[in-house]
Design a binder for these strands. Structure first.
Lengths: 175, 175
DNA sequence: GACATAAGTGAGTAGTCACTTACAATGCGG
DNA sequence: CCGCATTGTAAGTGACTACTCACTTATGTC
């Protein structure tokens, strides 16, 4: 007859994406152990029980968040890798990374991934992710050795600048 | 008469130092929310109740640990600040920082401090600590601007290298 | 040896945690 | 319109959490 009063159903895949978005934000701010699955479920608008049906365990959910975070970082670099020389391309990617400071969430998420590495499974995700990004940046830029090292060093400073909310640390001229 | 079967008592100050040492290790590995006060008390050999008499709250204990960690970092830099030019002194301090990778605990503790910055009081400790170290390194080395920026960038990369246990990231030639 | 003070604890409290079980509503292919 | 897989949940479970209170024991001092 009329529209049923009950909510339209989503596919499990849609729900998973909703939950991932919510969980990524929560984990980014409070970390693996500082975030409760209950609060994630609540903000995602599903029952606590269903969250576990969708993701199995809290750790698996955290890892899924970490992986989308690493993926988004890769995409940011790919989109920014423009320039005629390796150094120009690195600078361009570096600029894109600095811009992430405006919306700190992705950087905070990376911090929380590193901080949760006492868990071996999570450490493995972090290591693999770091290597993947390093290899991709090497490929995209054509740079290596000391230039690449400096690029990532600056990147990690920016990541930490995000966590203590001192974005000025990202620009060398402020030092 | 003979030695009493009960344990000799320490002063509260001695106990505080014992607890700080234990708590620093635990927090370094599992973070603020991943470490339980119960386990700290147990490993320090005191009752759970007494831990709270000594430190008030878990957060205060965490902050006390963070502060000794920052202090130890400062001392490491002071001890290493040798050389004839600013760059030489920076290099010497940088070398000392790389050596910390051998015993990761101090670096892990810094990571956990950054990761716990969603708590405003803790963030304030982290910011003040970072600034204090930056000012001290500037003073000790006489360097500034881009050189100082690069020094800290490399430092943060080393810190993260510790957390994902890839110490080779600390040496530029491995890139 | 009595007294004050400081060190130290057993046994809680109220609440939160990740995770489960048993069941209900929905909507699609036949 | 029926059968059935899928989406979804209410109501738990036991273990663990930070923190407290009432209390005991040791130690230095007069």
């Amino acid at each position: 007859m009329f529209a049923s009063p009950t909510r339209r159903r989503s596919t499990a895949e849609e729900r998973r994406e909703d939950v991932l978005a919510v969980a990524s934000r929560e984990f980014a701010h409070s970390g693996l152990h500082g975030t409760s699955t209950e609060s994630i479920a609540q903000r995602a608008g599903i029952s606590h029980a269903y969250l576990f049906r969708l993701f199995g365990t809290k750790r698996e959910l955290f890892i899924a968040c970490a992986e989308t975070c690493l993926q988004r970082t890769l995409e940011t670099f790919r989109a920014a890798a423009k320039g005629d020389t390796p150094q120009e391309r690195l600078d361009s990617m570096g600029g894109a990374y600095v811009e992430m400071l405006a919306d700190r969430e992705l950087l905070l998420a990376q911090m929380q991934l590193f901080a949760a590495c006492s868990d071996p499974q999570i450490q493995e995700v972090a290591r693999a992710g770091f290597k993947a990004i390093r290899d991709e940046v090497r490929l995209l830029s054509g740079a290596g050795g000391e230039d690449l090292h400096r690029f990532f060093a600056k990147g990690m400073l920016i990541t930490i600048a995000a966590s203590i909310d001192m974005p000025e640390l990202g620009s060398p001229e402020a030092w």
